[in-house]
Structure formats: C-alpha cells, structure tokens
Amino acid sequence: MSPHDHTDDHTHDHHHGDAAGHDHTTFQPDIKEPSEDWEFLEIALRELLIEKGVLSAREIQDEIEAWENKSPEGGARIVARAWTDDAYRQRLLADGNAAVGELGFTVEALKLVALENTETLHHMVVCTLCSCYPRPLLGVPPLWYKSREYRSRTVREPRAVLKEFGTELPVTTEVRVVDSTADCRYLVIPRRPEGTEGLSETALAALVSRDSMIGTAEAFSSDGKRNIL
C-alpha cells in the first residue's frame, strides 16, 4: 500500500518527509508539539548527533520501527509452543536463550530464564532497582512496570498488587516475586487454561496476555475472558 494514500482515514502518523514548505496544518495534528524541557533536550541532542555524523535520522527511525515490531505476541508464541510441545517446554526451562532462538528470537548478552507457573507456584516479575524487562520477547514495557508504585510495592505486598490487576490466588499457591536485579531476564509461562485441549497453537497464543507473562495476571480462559479462580 502507498504510505501516502490519503483516501483512507488518517489513523497513521507518518505523513512527513515531504518537501519543505508543505502545509502540515491538515495532516499533522497527531504530532504533539514539545512543551517540556526534556523534550527540547531530546531535539537538541538528536540534531547534534545527526549533524556530527554520530547517528543518522534513518537509523533512529529504523530503530523506533524495530522496537514497535516487537510485542507480547512474540512471547505468546513461545508460551503456546511450550504448552503444546512438552519437549520444547523442557528445553525452554533448561536453556531459555537456546529455546527462544529456535523460534527466531535473540536475547543478547543476557540470560533468559523461563519460569513456569503451576497450581502451587505463581511467579511475578519486578525490577526494584531499575526496569529490567525481556524486551526482545515482550516489546517495550508498559508504563506501570516502570512506575515507582509497582517497583516499590510488589516485593512488600504482592497479593495487594495482584488484586489491583484483578488477580486473586489461593493462599495454598506460593506467590514468588522475582526481582530482576542482574543479568537475567524472566519470561513467565502462565498456566494453560482448562478446556483448551482442542485449540491450535495460534488460538492458544491469543490467550497469552502480556501481563500473564509478567505474572500480574493469568492467561485468558478459553472463551477469551480473564481467568479468575
């Protein structure tokens, strides 16, 4: 499709790069004018780095697009494979980097560790020191994962935090908060919902939400709803 096909409604925001002097008042309302000091600092640093040949504008755009192409669908594919292929599940638990590599994912320089949730053990991941997150598998982290509230409270009151996400677990299930403090990145394998025996791998992947791979929620049930015990 043409990137400048204006017959569709204007839901994309990439209408730029036209000749200088083009009147943008019609087509550019969705690009927010910078207002904060740090947004001006971003412009200054970026323009200087481009002028000096350290980075190019094309590279920055490509990098933005590369990250936008990474999403929780990646992690969901891995989980669905682990649910349907027991040998794969065991390889994933034994060597996360190698097993996600089989499906075309690369987690460079870091150790990828898959954590399997069971009826008696529920993992939830936090980074209390910064905001470590398995971006190659889940994309850019949600704002709440990086928030002061999530980072501070999760290790102290995990069940209160889970409740805010609509997740309540029996006291017989050990809630294990995993603080991602070092060179490991964690992918939670949520429990496979009941009644999903006949589903294809693709249909199963659709039940694996981002939050279920962080551990603040469970996978959706077979009808696509939140799986509340």
Binding site: T128, L129, W144, R148, E149, S152, R153, R156, F165
Partner: peptide, 12 residues
C-alpha cells in the same frame, strides 16, 4: 532502590 517502600495504587 525502591523495593519495599510504601506507595499508592498502581495506574495500570
């Protein structure tokens, strides 16, 4: 280093 500090509700 925030682990264990008190905080308000999480904006999800």
């Amino acid at each position: 280093d925030l682990g264990g500090l008190a905080g308000g509700p999480i904006d999800i």
